[in-house]
């Protein structure tokens, strides 16, 4: 169970980071030919990417501390 939740947090973080960086932030690649390249598809997408990145590492905290949170 603990491993499952840890993996969920880690994978969730990676997915969130990748999805927001690649799909929700401003488009990647090619010669930027119009204004759409300058705007994220979802405003604050970079914040989501950063939260995702931070989540990946906090999975380790979840893994080591979780039982305590549950028991107490």
């Amino acid at each position: 169970m603990r491993i499952a939740i840890t993996a969920l947090v880690a994978v969730g973080g990676i997915v969130l980071a990748l999805v927001s960086a690649l799909l929700l932030a401003a488009p990647l690649g090619g010669a930027p030919f119009d204004e759409s390249f300058s705007n994220p598809r979802l405003v604050y997408a970079p914040t989501l990417a950063v939260i995702g990145v931070a989540l990946v590492f906090s999975a380790a905290i979840v893994y080591e501390l979780m039982p305590r949170i549950g028991d107490d």
């Binding site: 932030a25 401003a26 990647l28 970079p46």
Partner: peptide
């Protein structure tokens, strides 16, 4: 930056 940062 947190609003608009561009991966390119």
């Amino acid at each position: 930056i947190i609003k608009y940062a561009r991966p390119m």
